[in-house]
Simulated assay, not measured.
Amino acid sequence: MKKVKYFLSISFIFFLLTPSYAQDWPNLKRYQEENAALEILNPNEHRIVFMGNSITEGWLNIRPEFFENKPYVNRGISGQTTPQMLLRFRQDVINLTPSAVVILAGINDIAENTGPSTIEMIVNNIVSMAELAKANNIKVILCSILPAYDFPWKTGLEPAGKVVKLNAQLKAYATQNSVIYVDYFTPMVNTSNGLKKELGSDGIHPNVSGYLIMEPLVEEGISKALIQN
């Protein structure tokens, strides 16, 4: 058994060091074909890109009807951190010429998916995405991170307090820079600063009930963003 575990560990490290992974760390290939296939919108239509991680990606899988017959483009990639999203932001957001972008990011940074990150590092990456969008006349809808008491894939990191601090800084940035802020945290948090049990099975990812709370909140945010001067 020890030999098997050793082999698997060495194999995983080898995979991470292979040129194909190293050259596409932000997973730029993931949406290249879908991006190229996007239709040109009518003048009165407003494309909205959802940029995020597994919570965004899972939204399309669990609640596809939310995206049907709307100019909503889902560009979530499971497991991604904010530096990865920042690297693919031009390809997967700016080049799609949306009217607005919904940014939901940061929880995987707290989980250290791509290495240790400070709150400042996470905020800087998210702010960089927001500023890139604004520089290209794209409205920004900045979302709070969902509550998280612990990570099932990496226990003991105590993310609850970090989520609260990160959300406070994101809200402050939004207020100071006239950016729409969508608060998912407040209606989804339990008394331990974790995700309410009925809203997700693993304490991190929403189920149908969770997404049903998020949908009207983000649509309100999108509406507000589109009428901003």
Score class of each variant (00 low, 15 high):
100 A>C: 14
76 G>I: 14
72 Y>V: 12
88 R>K: 13
83 P>G: 07
74 N>Q: 15
81 T>P: 02
81 T>F: 01
92 D>C: 01
101 V>N: 13
91 Q>D: 14
80 Q>A: 05
76 G>H: 07
85 M>W: 07
82 T>H: 05
80 Q>E: 10
79 G>L: 03
85 M>P: 05
83 P>W: 07
72 Y>P: 06
90 R>F: 05
79 G>D: 04
100 A>H: 10
93 V>M: 03
73 V>P: 01
76 G>Y: 15
88 R>N: 04
77 I>N: 07
91 Q>I: 02
87 L>I: 13
97 T>C: 12
96 L>P: 04
84 Q>G: 01
77 I>L: 14
86 L>N: 10
77 I>F: 07
97 T>V: 11
90 R>Y: 10
73 V>W: 01
88 R>G: 03
73 V>K: 05
90 R>C: 08
101 V>G: 15
81 T>L: 02
78 S>P: 05
75 R>S: 05
93 V>L: 03
86 L>H: 09
82 T>L: 07
73 V>T: 08
87 L>Q: 06
94 I>A: 07
75 R>H: 02
83 P>S: 08
100 A>L: 08
88 R>A: 05
82 T>Q: 11
87 L>R: 13
89 F>Q: 00
87 L>P: 05
77 I>T: 11
78 S>T: 04
96 L>G: 06
83 P>E: 10
73 V>N: 02
86 L>S: 15
81 T>C: 12
71 P>M: 09
75 R>I: 05
99 S>C: 11
77 I>C: 14
79 G>R: 01
92 D>S: 04
101 V>C: 15
73 V>H: 00
81 T>K: 02
89 F>E: 00
100 A>S: 09
99 S>T: 15
82 T>V: 08
101 V>R: 12
80 Q>G: 11
101 V>Q: 14
96 L>N: 10
82 T>N: 11
80 Q>F: 09
73 V>C: 03
83 P>M: 11
76 G>C: 09
89 F>L: 00
82 T>Y: 14
88 R>M: 13
81 T>V: 14
71 P>R: 15
93 V>E: 00
86 L>F: 03
90 R>E: 05
101 V>E: 15
77 I>R: 06
80 Q>P: 09
93 V>G: 01
71 P>K: 12
94 I>M: 14
85 M>G: 12
100 A>T: 09
85 M>Y: 13
88 R>C: 03
87 L>N: 10
92 D>Q: 02
91 Q>K: 11
92 D>A: 00
98 P>T: 15
76 G>W: 03
96 L>W: 06
92 D>I: 01
86 L>M: 13
75 R>M: 02
98 P>D: 15
89 F>S: 01
95 N>D: 11
92 D>T: 00
75 R>K: 05
84 Q>H: 04
94 I>N: 07
84 Q>P: 03
93 V>C: 02
77 I>S: 02
93 V>W: 01
86 L>Y: 09
84 Q>F: 02
77 I>Y: 06
78 S>A: 14
95 N>P: 10
101 V>A: 13
93 V>R: 00
